[in-house]
Amino acid sequence: KWTITVQGEEAIKWAIKVAEARNLDYTVHIDGDQAHITIE
C-alpha cells in the first residue's frame, strides 16, 4: 500500500487515469489543489 501526493488538476486527472488503467484499487483524498492517492 502506498500513497502519492499530486498537485494541480491536470496531475490529479493523470494519476487517476494511471490507477484506473492499471486496474488498481485506490482512494483519493482531495485537499485544496492537492490530492493524496492511496493505492492498495
Rank of each mutant, 00 (worst) to 15 (best):
E40V: 14
N23V: 03
T38R: 06
A19P: 00
I39H: 02
K1T: 12
E9G: 07
K17Y: 10
A15K: 01
W2T: 04
K17T: 10
D25E: 14
I16M: 06
H36E: 07
K1S: 11
G32Q: 04
A21E: 15
E10R: 10
D25K: 15
G32T: 03
A35Y: 13
I16Y: 02
G32Y: 03
A15P: 00
E20N: 07
G8K: 02
H29N: 08
K13M: 10
I4D: 00
T5G: 02
A19L: 15
A21G: 09
K13P: 01
E9V: 12
N23F: 07
K17S: 14
A35S: 03
I16V: 08
L24D: 04
W14I: 06
Y26E: 00
V18M: 14
T38A: 05
K13Y: 09
Q7P: 02
T5V: 12
A35M: 08
G8T: 05
A15E: 02
T38V: 13
D31A: 08
A11Y: 08
A35P: 03
Q34H: 12
E9N: 07
Q34F: 15
I30M: 12
G8Q: 02
V6E: 00
V6K: 00
I12S: 01
A19Y: 07
V6Q: 01
G32F: 05
I16N: 01
V18Q: 14
N23S: 07
D33Y: 06
W2P: 01
R22K: 14
Y26Q: 00
K13S: 08
I16D: 01
A15I: 14
Y26L: 04
A21D: 15
D31T: 09
K13V: 07
G32P: 02
A15D: 01
I12F: 07
A21L: 13
A21K: 08
R22D: 12
H29K: 12
D25Q: 14
I30F: 13
K13H: 06
H29Y: 13
D33I: 07
T27K: 09
I4G: 01
K1G: 08
E40W: 15
A19K: 02
A15N: 02
E20G: 04
I39Q: 02
I4R: 00
K1L: 08
E10S: 08
E10D: 10
G32A: 05
W14F: 08
Q34N: 09
K1M: 09
T5K: 06
W2Y: 11
N23L: 07
W2I: 07
D25F: 13
I12Q: 02
E9A: 13
A11Q: 11
I4C: 08
H36K: 10
A11F: 08
I39K: 00
K13Q: 12
I39N: 00
W2H: 05
W14D: 06
Q7F: 13
V6N: 00
W14V: 05
A19E: 03
H29P: 00
A11R: 11
L24M: 06
A19I: 15
A35G: 05
W2S: 03
N23I: 04
A21Y: 12
E9Q: 11
T38D: 03
R22C: 13
I16L: 10
I37R: 00
H36G: 02
V28N: 01
K13F: 07
A11C: 15
H36Q: 10
I4L: 10
A21I: 12
T5F: 09
Q34A: 11
